[in-house]
Design a protein around this nucleic acid. Structure first.
Lengths: 346, 346
DNA sequence: AGCGTTACCGGTAACGTTCCCGGTGGTTTT
DNA sequence: AAAACCACCGGGAACGTTACCGGTAACGCT
């Protein structure tokens, strides 16, 4: 283990003080050109790298952002890429921690990063999280914190999120316009805002078109495929079964699709389907699944920008909320009016 | 910005020395029970958290692992989850950096983490990387480093990887057994070992079954869907077109599948297809795509374990190579013998 | 000649922690 | 009663860096 060159080594061999070396390496003011070039040359030779550790200790900031996400699926990975992009440019390093949708992991990760490892946080909460004390601790410490994607009204902090209500609205409106009458929704866990917002959009669309809300068509289930499958199987057993399903994630849409196919129903004729996220898979299955696209990369960038902003200026941005707009991508699974190719099922 | 409580604060209010506080908080030896409880109580009250920064500076280790990956697709995200798992348990924090398959980004990331931020690295190289000086610098510093997934023989370090040759063999053998005669391969970039190894497996299988190797059936293209699509389009234009395609990733398989469908060919009758990675999508498309599954989570865990091992003991493990075995998952895209349901195409 | 200005540099403290060494008192051993 | 031992504690240095303050020489100005 060769130990790296320090500022002291340079000072010693050049027979000058560490202060001078430090200045030569940075400010360039208050230091003779000759000594400066000497320092620079030697530091090059020893390939000196300043210790970020010592620096961080000294000036009490690490230039590192802690990013806490529930997992690293397609959408979130894309968001993280966005965060990475602007963070890197601003001279920050990011530490990504997956909570695995587990409240415990989320707490442990937060605690760890809190011990003077990061300057602040960019967070998307896990689906298990119902209590936010560990995040509030961040703010008590006076650290900047931005919430993104999965936000929560219990958390007073700058937020960047999708307009999930509009997403829900777009999907539902589209199904209505395609002539579907009994539209079911597979919403996510009740404690997640994205879940409730998308449900709100669904309700708004029904109201707009004066369609009665039927509670048995509203189902909460987890984000995974299996749960969605089972819920759909149940839905399709109803005497008056729904003729369309809106799921608030594509994974859930896949689950629903499997149940639909198993039952022998055809999309979009017998039943319509719309998902959420516009994951690549939606374009690959047959029929293609219509889905609400979110600008994930942009969303990540926006979150990081907001973070940096909050970092630099002292102003309180905790009531700022950037809301990005979704876009509906229509595919075959819900396109009944434009191109009916198959005969109607009995 | 409320500054956190330090060991000094505790010492001052308790009118004892910092040394004693430090001992009380750790060793428990050489400290009176009474003072110890007092320290513990006060530290609880001030909710004291030791500064990992100061600690790291002092003992020259950060308890952090730098993980550098080309991207965060399904397989790699799963591997990272595995790394995370054992790292967390061993008291390490991981820093994940995506190089985005870019050599430049990979260098920048490595450089950054090198400045006394991490104790070592777990690395999967980007597809652009042809030169490894930035990684060798890690070893010059005497830091442990484990290479996983995408390894390279130019890098002398402990490795954890899939038996890619066997993966290639399994896929090809299966296609041969299903009666396919002209089997093309879509290999990845030439400088990647995983690419060449899978190709080797392909060649081995051909040799085993005494099938002549035809150079025009061997194609290198990038990992993305588009490239695979275009390459396949070209392949299918040949006068004697291949009757099966083995792609070394599922993304590529999807691209190939699109080209195949466009051409009006049917799987598995007219043409067989096998992918690699067993991503969920392979089970969702129609027909389902056969694919070589790799134990990604296990692979990540193994890499982290090897890292920890190298960290703790001084022994040189740089010639250790853990090779995990793949498994072929057969789906409809290549299953010609078992269930022929459609008439033969003219 | 005396004074202020400038250009350059060094010493020291500080960031929060641990480690090593050297004390104290009090008790036991010889 | 001297010597040895123990349990407990404090002082100081060290990790690598920068900030602050002060000092010295050289120079120019009145």
């Amino acid at each position: 283990m060769i130990k790296p060159a320090t500022i002291k080594d340079i000072a010693k061999t050049l027979k000058i003080s560490t202060s001078t070396v430090s200045r030569a390496l940075r400010n360039a003011s208050d230091v003779n050109l000759k000594t400066r070039t000497a320092v620079l040359a030697l530091s090059e030779e020893l390939n000196y790298q300043p210790s970020r550790l010592a620096l961080s200790l000294q000036q009490k900031q690490t230039h590192t952002i802690g990013v806490i996400v529930p997992n690293l699926d397609y959408v979130i990975a894309t968001m993280v890429k966005g965060i990475d992009e602007v963070a890197l440019e601003a001279g920050y390093t990011v530490m990504v921690c997956q909570s695995n949708e587990s409240f415990g992991r989320e707490m442990v990760n937060t605690r760890r990063l809190l011990d003077s490892l990061v300057d602040g946080f960019i967070i998307s909460v896990s689906s298990e999280t119902k209590v936010f004390d560990h995040f509030k601790k961040i703010q008590q410490k006076g650290m900047p914190m931005v919430v993104f994607d999965r936000v929560s009204s219990d958390l007073v902090a700058p937020k960047v999120r999708l307009d999930n209500t509009e997403g829900g609205y777009l999907a539902t409106e589209h199904l209505i316009e395609q002539g579907y009458k009994r539209i079911a929704i597979l919403a996510g866990p009740k404690n997640l805002t994205i879940s409730n917002d998308r449900l709100d959009g669904y309700l708004k669309a029904l109201k707009k078109f004066k369609i009665k809300v039927e509670p048995e068509l509203i189902n909460h289930c987890n984000f995974n495929q299996q749960d969605a499958y089972e819920t759909t199987v149940d839905l399709l057993k109803m005497k008056r079964r729904p003729d369309a399903i809106f799921t608030i994630s594509d994974r859930m849409a896949i689950g629903a699709m499997l149940a639909i196919k198993e039952k022998g129903l055809r999309m979009p004729i017998d039943i319509g389907l719309v998902g959420f996220n516009n994951e690549p898979v939606t374009a690959l299955v047959t029929p293609g699944i219509s889905s609400v696209e979110q600008p994930a990369f942009e969303l990540g960038k926006a979150a990081a920008k907001l973070f940096i902003e909050q970092m630099h200026h002292e102003e309180d941005l905790s009531d700022v909320e950037r809301v990005l707009r979704p876009r509906l991508i229509v595919r075959e699974s819900s396109l009944r009016k434009a191109g009916v190719r198959l005969p109607r099922a009995k």
